[in-house]
Computed example of a mutant assay.
Amino acid sequence: MPSQTEIQLTQEQLADFPVYYEGDYKPLVGLLIRWGASKHEAEDVAQEAMLAAFMSWPTIQSPKAFVRKAAYRILLRSWQVAERETCAASRVAQDAMVDAFDANEDLPKYWRMMRALPDAQRVVFALHHDGYGSSEISEITGQRRDTVRSNVRHARQKLVRMMDPESTRREATHGP
């Protein structure tokens, strides 16, 4: 008995898939666009979902349901990756702005900004700035790692807003 990766498609099964593909590709792309994907993104996701269907074709009971479930998962994964990349780029820009601030140059302003942070954020941010990782900070402060990361993110955002008040106005006017 062949393994799942070695399943051979019969001529009839091979003939069925292109018919299904031709009939469902455009409706799938339209659905993905209604879900919020760009046209290009929808086409890529639809292709990937159809490939997954082709690879599992002999075992699929309901091709339409299978392809939509696969497409949904692929689309969410692509959005999560894009969100992580956007957040990482934003963090790099924010870190550069925070690093460019010379606390020795304007010590009163530095202490004013640090005191403006809630205690938990101030402690976590100082440790983060000193090079400690989330796990180490978690161990030191007794906070969960997710809480540590959240506190660092919120502290960074608040410090950036204090250093560049215009950034708040730009954020408020950006978006739908």
Rank of each mutant, 00 (worst) to 15 (best):
V152Q: 02
A88F: 11
V81I: 15
A96H: 10
S38F: 03
S135L: 13
P63C: 09
H129F: 07
G36C: 11
E43H: 06
L9T: 13
V45E: 04
A100G: 15
R144D: 13
V29T: 01
M114P: 09
R115E: 08
A49Q: 05
S90C: 12
E22S: 06
D44W: 02
K69D: 01
D99C: 09
F101G: 00
S167I: 14
S134K: 14
A103M: 09
E139V: 11
A96G: 10
F54W: 06
V124Q: 07
V81D: 11
T147S: 13
S62H: 10
G133D: 13
A53D: 08
S134P: 09
E12T: 12
D44Y: 02
D99E: 08
K39E: 12
Q157T: 11
V81H: 13
E83N: 15
F17G: 03
F125I: 10
P27W: 02
T173D: 10
M97H: 08
K26S: 01
S78Y: 03
E171D: 12
D95L: 07
R77V: 11
R77D: 14
W111Q: 08
R68V: 00
T86Q: 15
R112E: 11
D146V: 08
P108D: 05
Q4M: 15
Q61G: 00
G142P: 04
Q143S: 04
L32H: 00
F66P: 03
M113Y: 07
Q61V: 03
W111H: 03
F101L: 05
V67L: 02
D130R: 15
F125D: 00
P58V: 01
A96Y: 07
R145W: 08
H128G: 04
V123N: 04
Y72A: 11
P27C: 05
R68T: 10
E6F: 14
M114H: 01
L9C: 13
R153K: 15
E41F: 06
E166L: 12
P2S: 14
A103V: 07
A52G: 09
V124P: 00
V19T: 05
L76R: 01
K158H: 14
E12A: 15
L14M: 13
Q61M: 04
V81Q: 14
H174F: 13
D95M: 13
R153D: 10
V98W: 04
L14N: 13
D44N: 05
K39Q: 03
G131C: 02
H128R: 14
A65R: 08
T168P: 07
V152E: 00
Q13T: 01
D24I: 01
Y20P: 04
M163G: 02
D130L: 08
D164W: 13
Q143R: 04
I33G: 04
A96E: 12
D16G: 12
A116W: 05
A155K: 06
A155E: 03
S62W: 05
R112T: 11
V45A: 06
S3T: 15
K158G: 03
R145M: 10
M1I: 14
A71L: 00
S78N: 10
F54Y: 12
R68H: 08
A172H: 06
R161V: 04
Q4S: 15
A100W: 09
P108E: 03
A96Q: 01
R169C: 00
Y20E: 01
Q121C: 06
T168M: 07
D146P: 07
A82L: 12
L51Q: 11
N104S: 09
Q11C: 14
A103F: 11
Y21G: 01
S135F: 00
